[in-house]
Design a protein around this nucleic acid. Sequence first.
DNA 1: CCCATAGAAGCACGATCGTACGTGCTGAAA
DNA 2: TTTCAGCACGTACGATCGTGCTTCTATGGG
Lengths: 214, 214
Amino acid sequence: MNDRSMRAPQPVRRPRADGERTRQAILREAVSLATVDGLEGLSIGDLAKALGMSKSGLYAHFGSKQELQLATVEEAGRIFQAEVVGPALAAPPGLAQLVAVCDAFCDHLQRRTFPGGCFFAGAALEMGTRPGPVKERIAAFQSAFVGLIRTFAASALEQRQVAADEDPDQLAFEINGIILAADTNFVLHDDPGALDVARRVVRRRLGVEPAAVR
Amino acid sequence: MNDRSMRAPQPVRRPRADGERTRQAILREAVSLATVDGLEGLSIGDLAKALGMSKSGLYAHFGSKQELQLATVEEAGRIFQAEVVGPALAAPPGLAQLVAVCDAFCDHLQRRTFPGGCFFAGAALEMGTRPGPVKERIAAFQSAFVGLIRTFAASALEQRQVAADEDPDQLAFEINGIILAADTNFVLHDDPGALDVARRVVRRRLGVEPAAVR
DNA sequence: CCCATAGAAGCACGATCGTACGTGCTGAAA
DNA sequence: TTTCAGCACGTACGATCGTGCTTCTATGGG
């Protein structure tokens, strides 16, 4: 007898292809809605209505609202990775990556992937004071992002592309601040001009000629 | 006959002293709760429970949730004026005000006036994509704040306290970014060290010796 | 082709949401 | 001291919240 027959009859979860597609569609819409209503304000009913399906059918995919929130954060992370982190990593290591990560973020906002701006900027402030696994996951993503910027800054420092007395931690803090200010101003005033300002600011701060701003 | 007797009998609102005190207490608590639950997530029931009064008694002070939100934003503005803008204005015009506004903001966070960090940083991202008078009021406060920082920057530029090629708009954008990054990091990681970083960053950025960081 | 099973829907629940109405209590003006 | 409006209350409403349970459909491995 093989291993399977020896095991106690554990009801293994075996997802089907159409269910996985539905789940994916749910999470996409969930991330989008969460940028407007927040992760807490996002309701199962509204989400189901936006997808044209039933509350219970949607709910069965996650089992609880918290599980839905966690899966939504993960999906947002995948999208952020593809739209912002990926392009930044594709640039030459160092100074160019610092500029690229800011540009990629501004492009991400400008093409309006989500109606409510950056998912993580909003989620961080919303869930920051609500202890639990959702906050922890968001905090982990934010730390990883700032850490990524810090490695870019450290690389730029190694290559003498910035002043020798610059500090990677402080520089990462500033770049992150520019990104947050870009998101806040863009969302609040619905003005792409705020993104142009951000693109100029990061170049001036790093001593890069501002020719590349489209 | 005087003006009053000539007017049509308009039922003038004549608030009583105890009612005004209650209303003030409500708004204080509302601002505090809104920094955790958001302006939309803030519920009349929770607010009444936190104050030990009835839902209906509280509700009568405002007549609608939107009016409560608007009054809450105004109250938050008064507190922000007293805790951040006031101290910044008290500093010598120019460069010192730029440092002071950041310090005052960090102090404001560190003394934990509200459990959820900066009211306006959270409210801006939450309400930014929700059209209506509440969003407009928040946007107005945020614009006024950035405008204030810009006047500080312009004054510093006039007095040759910063490099001649600095731009007040871009400088205000950066300082605002540092403030937003300070709030986000502090709220998310509950770490006062993030505020120390912010205080150091703003000094380094402006070329001020970092001796004054406590 | 069959059928065990994942997926989706229908329905119902207790709780809580914002809002409305009616009623005593009480502070301040007359 | 009398009087009246502001204040706070209890109660109730329709809607919606997250969450179960039951039932039908349809998919994919044997």
